[in-house]
Simulated scan of single mutants.
Amino acid sequence: MRGPSVPPQYAYQRVAEDLTRRITSGEFPPGSRLPSRAELCAEYDVSSFVADRVFLILKMNGLTESLPGAGVYVKETGQLDG
């Protein structure tokens, strides 16, 4: 007998969910810088395309903001959407 099947996830979904969990748990508090694209690629063994999509998802969910040339940062509490 097989256990319940879990639908497959795209790599960007898996990484975005993990980073969301890490942000909401306080591992990355408001104002902190997230790992760079290269660091994300190495940590999660994903391509730069996947890393870029992860950053886009986090931004669309109102969790982060990008500062050109400086990186991606967790939004301050007062700036969180919703």
Rank of each mutant, 00 (worst) to 15 (best):
I57M: 13
S48K: 09
G71Y: 05
G71Q: 02
A11M: 10
G3I: 03
T64W: 07
S5R: 08
Y12K: 10
P7F: 11
A51K: 06
N61Y: 08
L80N: 06
R21F: 14
R21D: 14
R14D: 01
L58Q: 06
A11G: 02
L56W: 07
M60E: 15
G71R: 07
G69I: 04
Q79E: 14
L63I: 03
F55S: 02
S48A: 11
Q9P: 00
K59G: 06
S25I: 05
Y73D: 08
T20V: 02
P8I: 10
E27A: 07
T20D: 05
D81A: 15
G69M: 07
P4W: 01
F55A: 03
G3F: 08
G82E: 12
L40D: 01
V74H: 05
D52K: 15
L34D: 05
L56Y: 09
F28W: 07
N61S: 12
D18S: 06
T64S: 07
P29Q: 07
Y10H: 13
S32C: 00
D52Y: 12
L19W: 01
T20Y: 02
A38V: 10
P4D: 02
Y73R: 07
L67E: 11
V72E: 01
F55L: 10
R53I: 11
A42G: 04
G78Q: 09
T64Q: 07
G78T: 10
R37K: 07
V54A: 01
I57L: 15
A70E: 11
D81Q: 15
G78Y: 07
M1Q: 12
V50C: 14
N61G: 06
V72T: 12
L63R: 06
L56G: 12
D81M: 15
E17M: 11
F49G: 11
E39G: 00
E76Y: 11
S47Q: 11
S36V: 01
F28E: 00
G69Y: 06
R37W: 00
V72Q: 09
D45I: 04
L80P: 00
M60P: 00
A51I: 03
G62D: 02
S47V: 11
S47D: 14
D52H: 12
L63F: 08
L63P: 06
P7I: 12
R14Q: 09
E39C: 01
E17N: 15
Y10T: 14
A70D: 08
T64V: 14
D45E: 12
Y44E: 03
T20S: 11
M1F: 11
E39L: 04
A11C: 02
S32I: 00
G82W: 10
D18L: 09
Y12N: 05
G62M: 03
D52I: 13
G3H: 09
T24A: 05
R21W: 13
Y12P: 00
A42E: 12
L67C: 05
F49I: 14
R33Y: 04
T24G: 01
P7V: 13
E27T: 08
G26R: 12
P7L: 14
P8L: 13
V74P: 05
D45Q: 13
P29E: 08
P30L: 08
A38N: 10
V72H: 09
Y10V: 09
M1S: 15
R2K: 11
R33I: 05
F55R: 05
P7G: 07
V50E: 09
L58S: 04
